[in-house]
Design a protein around this nucleic acid. Structure first.
Lengths: 208, 208
DNA sequence: TCATCCAGTTAACAACTGTTCTCCGGAATT
DNA sequence: AATTCCGGAGAACAGTTGTTAACTGGATGA
């Protein structure tokens, strides 16, 4: 059983989380490479120097945000993949699952989409590594399916990356449509579902 | 007949281009939202105030860079699509065409990949609009093909977006592998070719 | 209870930012 | 030849940045 961490460490983690939350909010309108340390502390209501008690730099903060954001994405990806076979009904449900996640954690999704190719190398690397993990996880999930019979490991991984990228593209589309009309959001849903269906069809006929 | 633009306008365009080139170089290691106006002028060797003679802000510069970068991408996309049918040989050639473009204009590709989801709204919008144009162009190209018979306009556009996104993903992969070993670059080529082949297969069986 | 620890504070630093206004000198126009 | 135009220079502005050092006070562990 974990010992109740003292009121000291509790406070520390609390302000640490506050810094991360404030940063995530500020990153809605800028990129990490322009995020200032003072800007973040000011938003939290804490002295600039307090920042160093938690992070070496804003890049360091960024890496921490990657863990948090992709940690929350983790369960969704698994659920999405297991229901992403050719059946139109299940595909649409998978897409709606992505839509729900974007609605629940828009800042996380925005951060990942923005910094995946962003200007801060350590953060790019962290995202790349985590997405690589996801791809391997997806591959393991795909391998369970009967349709994976006869597939090489390389091909399975290739398809996994395709799925992961497609998920990010779809999430980004929903992000743009976050404040749009329900009709527009429905159009995004249908578009994403058809793209995923086309991929599933390609998967089905891969070994022909 | 276009009149030879005076030595005055010529000089103006020259420094304007110098500013854009310097900015593109500086953006290799940061995002547009952190690019400073003084930083750019310093790199060109010109007074900070001269910047305003050409651009309202760095965001404005960014929009100009979008036009330049996607202008150079324009002919490549057309060539890529026309050779992206199911035939394995042609697909591989299309992928190598992308690889060549990335090698020729790495800064352009990096800029688009980075700022597509970046922190500067007008630039995001400009990229979105241009990519939308590309998708429509690709659609027109696909419609010429015999395989497009029976396809709805919506489905053709859906496939076009899939192709455009896939091209960007592939380009970004080659960008990461720019300084990698030839073996790694070849692996990227094979991966991208197989992903494109899977999409082509899905396209082929779409109407089943 | 007392000494230690340590998250957060205060103050100060040189360096940098975007923007304004005024000016210069050569090209363009008349 | 005389005048207007205009890309660029220069200086100055208030405000911001990251980083340092020394300090404070409450939680922690002996």
């Amino acid at each position: 059983m974990s010992h109740t961490l003292g009121i000291r460490q509790a406070q520390k983690q609390k302000t640490r989380q506050a810094l991360m939350d404030a940063a995530l909010a500020l990153l809605e309108e800028q990129s990490l490479s322009s995020l200032g340390l003072r800007e973040v502390t000011r938003a939290v209501g804490v002295a600039p120097t307090a920042f160093y008690r938690h992070f070496r730099s804003t890049a360091d903060l960024g890496v921490a945000l990657v863990e948090e954001a992709l940690g929350s994405l983790h369960p969704m990806i698994r659920t999405t993949v297991t229901s992403a076979d050719s059946s139109g009904e299940r595909i649409k449900r998978a897409v709606e699952l992505i839509a729900g996640h974007v609605t629940a954690y828009p800042a996380h999704v925005r951060f990942i989409a923005r910094e995946r190719h962003g200007g801060v190398q350590p953060v790019r690397e962290a995202i790349r590594e985590q997405l690589g993990r996801f791809a391997h996880e997806v591959k393991a999930e795909l391998a369970k399916d009967a349709e994976a019979a006869g597939w090489s490991d390389d091909d399975l991984l290739m398809l996994s990356h395709l799925y992961v990228d497609q998920m990010l593209i779809t999430a980004s589309l929903f992000l743009e449509a976050l404040e749009a009309s329900p009709e527009d959001r429905e159009r995004v849903t249908l578009l994403a579902a058809r793209q995923m269906r086309l991929i599933s069809i390609g998967r089905h006929h891969w070994l022909d």
